[in-house]
Structures are given as C-alpha cells and as structure tokens.
Write a protein that binds this DNA or RNA. Structure first.
Lengths: 258, 258
DNA sequence: CAAAAGCATATGTTGAACAAATCCCTCGCC
DNA sequence: GGCGAGGGATTTGTTCAACATATGCTTTTG
C-alpha cells in the first residue's frame, strides 16, 4: 500500500490527534462546527459526519445549542479498534489508561497463549512464524525511526496472531488493544533494559511452545515475554489485576497436561 | 426512564433489528438510501448519518455507486456496547457468536471474580449486593415477561458489578458483552434445568467470597455459577477456548479434596 | 431584586443539486 | 463469433443553503 497522496485527513483524525495528545481535556469544548469548516476548508456536512464518529466511540458529547464537549476518559470506548489505533499513533495520551491496558495484558496473555497452544492450526503457526521472522530481521537495524516502527509492527503482528489462534472471536477482537501498549514500549525505547537478543529468544520459546502443543509451557513463556514489559513500566508482577499468585497455585495443584 | 414517546426510532435501529434477526445476511445488500428515505419518511442526510454508525461498527460496508453490503460476522465489532445491546435485544442473531461469547465468559469470569475478591472496595460490594437482592426479589415472580426481563437485568447488573470491582478499565468495558449471553439464557428459559433457588445460592456464594476477600473461593464460585449456563447451551466444559479443561480439572480436584 | 422576555450562538434537520464510482448493456472492431 | 471500448443507468459521495430548535446571557419589567 503506497499511502494515498493527498486525500485530506479527516477532521475526526485531526480532532482525535488533538484530544489524545491532551490539547483538549475532558470537560472542555472543541471548536464549533463552522470554525472547523473554515479551518479545514470543508463543508459542514462532512464536519458533522466526522464529529458523529467521535460521538459514537464516546469521546465527545454534543450539546445542542452549546457545543461539543470532550467526555471523561472512562466513557471512551477503548475496546474500539479505531480508538486503540488513535491511542497508538498519537502517543501516550493518558498514562493511566496505558497502565490499565498493560495490567490487562499481564492478566490475559498467558491464558491466551495457553489456549492457542491447544487450538492453533497449521495456518496459525504460519502467521506466528512470519511475524517472528520479521521480528528477527528488524532486530539489528534499530537505528532509524522507520526501522523501529517496522519492528513494533511485527511485535504487534506476533501477539495478534496468537490471539487469533484461539479461534474465539472475542479474543481475536481483543487483540486490538495490544497496539497502544506495544507502541508505547517502542516510544519509551528503554525496553532495552533487557537484551533484545534475549527478548527474541523468549518470543521464540513462546512460539515453539504453541507449535508443540504444550499449554503449560506456553503459559509460562508468555509470562516471561511480558515480564520485561512489566518492568519497563514499573508494574510489579503481583500487582496484576489477575493475580499471578493464585494462578500459580492453581497451576501447581493441577498437572496442566504438561 | 419513561421511554421517549414518539421520537422516531433511528434508521440504524430498524436496520440493526433486520440484520441481527437475519433478514439481511452477510453479503447481501440493504435497501438503498432513497428507499430508506421513503420507507421512514426521513431525509437523506439522516439516513446517511445512521448508516455511518453501522459502518463504524463494522456491520455494513458501503460501496460507492453500488450499495451497502452486510459484512461477515467476523468483521462486526462485537465488543462495541451498541452492538452488544443490539445482540441482546434482537435475539440470538447468530448462535455461533453466542457460543463464542459464552465460551469467552467461561474462560474469563472466574479470573475476574478472583481479581474482584482482591480489589473490591466497599462501594463495589454495595453494587453487587443490590443486584443480588434484586435477583432474589424477582426470583419467585417469574410469571410475566416483564418480571423475567427485570430478573435478567439484575443478573446482568450482578455480573457487571463484579467486572467493575476489578477497577481495571478494560475489564469494566468488557462487561458489556455479558448482556447478550444473559438475555439469551432468559429467552431460552430452560435455564430452569437447574433449580432457581440453587442458582441464587451459587450467586450468594460468589458474592460472599468476594466480600470476604477469598480470591480462590471466588474463582471456584464463579465457575459454579457458570456451570449451569454452560449446560443450558450444550457447551461441554472442555470446549472452552481458554483451557476450560484445565480450569475444570482444577475445580474438580479442589472440590474433591475439600 | 427577581422573574420573564428577548437576543445571540450553536447544534439539529431538511432539501436540492451535482460529482464520482460501479455495473451492465450495447456497439463496433478484429 | 468473440472481445473490448464506450455509454447510460444506478447508487453512493460531496457540497451548499435555508430554517428549526436548544442553550446561555442580557435586558426588560413588575
């Protein structure tokens, strides 16, 4: 895909950028329709159409005769793919939300990996392997921004492929929320606290566990992959909303068909 | 809320009803804009605005110069609150999706309950308890449809309150997908396979476990609550996308061992 | 001083005209 | 006879203009 040359960026895109980067805070009013028309040299219908998109995902609220107000973060539909896309591209909008998503990932991904190990078909392994190889190729050349972007895209693709391998539509759609947290890590870029080579090796372990249909190993491998992530953001493992400790209990009590 | 008297139901609502109930299948075209204008005696701008909502949640795809096509189920944003609301109100649209959601619930809710047991504050207990009491009140009078609706609303509220008690925004928003599966159960109404009194008791156990901050008990109690649900829809425990088998193993072993 | 009327401002609704994309049928060339 | 270019019909996309309605602030009036 060559990136369309001059198709005007939608108003929704501009406003989302402004809101997600914090220039308009919850409670504040965004410019009125006619100002947006002038600012972007566009007609009012188009402006209204785009504003509706922001309304539908809970980001703004329109008050007849008054204006369009940015809603509280808790009202945003952060599970909407479009919203997570904006979160990823317009940077850490709200550190709190980023932490919440990472906590969620810490809770969920080991189980997703476990399920993937049980149900992944050959076709799923292809997707996982391709993403992994992309991860390896773009490892060394972490110089320019473009290279790093490519690397993080492969990282996203790797995790998304695992979610899809569960063959459950809910899990598959949840994979969208990975994008912001992974992109955040790249932007922080002090992920290098842990050796990149080592990180790659952990990803390989996870991939192999799924391929060899070893749910328990996959569970642990996914935890290992995320461990570095948690450190980078200062999340202690036990703080996970899903208690790691209890899971370890359960795991120890049951011989997870290792 | 008294239900607005005659504010015309939106076109989106009508189309959603038609699509979710299966009158328009994926791949088919919905009526063209001008037909919708005539059919609902409304102007084209309003029609287009509503159609945009359906586009944004992935339900239809607009093809310039051709028409508006219903997209495949896998493309629908089933995590969107509006979509789950339509699923709940316009009945089992797609048994497959319902199964997927129930599988997801079986995987997730025990862990959510466990987390809630760790993090619930007093305020959360209030919400859970209120929903539980509503559950008990509307138990006996399962006669008319209105009563049953009230009962299922309390059921939804109970589970939603537990999700919210995790104090994680992702989990909280995920609680939206409970609605369709709970409403489905009510409509099937053969939940009575298990004694209502017994079901209420299981809910009470879950509530108490969370209150007493006993994560492991909460985990098991949530599994017990969902067990009847799984039976009612003919989901064998092992079919869970997330290692249902391992979790059920855990439960049975723990149960047997006291 | 307070309540009501009025005004300014913003969003909500409607209607029309034209532009662009797609499909399909027809015509003409090879 | 087959195949491709061209054109017309259909449908969605875009733009513009006018009016209706809701909200907040100001002014008027008892």
């Amino acid at each position: 895909m060559v990136a369309k040359p001059a198709t005007r960026l939608s108003i929704a895109e501009h406003l989302a950028e402004a809101i997600f980067s914090g220039r308009y805070q919850p409670g504040e009013l965004v410019p009125r329709e006619l100002d947006l028309c002038e600012r972007f040299a566009i007609n009012r219908s188009a402006v209204r159409s785009d504003l509706r998109q922001l309304v539908d995902v809970g980001i703004i609220e329109r008050i007849s005769g008054h204006g369009s107000k940015v809603r509280e973060y808790s009202e945003w539909h952060i599970l909407d793919p479009q919203v997570t896309d904006w979160m990823a591209r317009y940077a850490a909008p709200n550190p709190q939300i980023q932490r919440e998503i990472l906590t969620f990932r810490l809770d969920v991904e080991p189980y997703v990996a476990m399920t993937a190990a049980r149900r992944a078909k050959a076709r799923d392994l292809v997707a996982i392997e391709e993403a992994f190889e992309g991860l390896g190729q773009n490892l060394r050349s972490a110089s320019c921004a473009e290279e790093r972007r490519l690397h993080s895209e492969c990282d996203v693709a790797f995790h998304v492929a695992i979610f899809k391998a569960t063959h459950n539509i809910v899990w598959a759609q949840l994979s969208h929320i990975l994008r912001p947290s992974i992109h955040l890590l790249v932007s922080m870029s002090n992920e290098s606290a842990s050796d990149p080579e080592e990180s790659l090796e952990r990803h390989r372990q996870l991939m192999e566990s799924i391929r060899m249909r070893r749910p328990r190993e996959a569970f642990l491998a996914a935890q290992a992959v995320l461990a570095g992530t948690a450190d980078a953001l200062g999340l202690e493992p036990g703080a996970g909303s899903l208690g790691g400790s209890a899971l370890v209990e359960a795991k120890s009590q049951v011989d997870l068909e290792g």
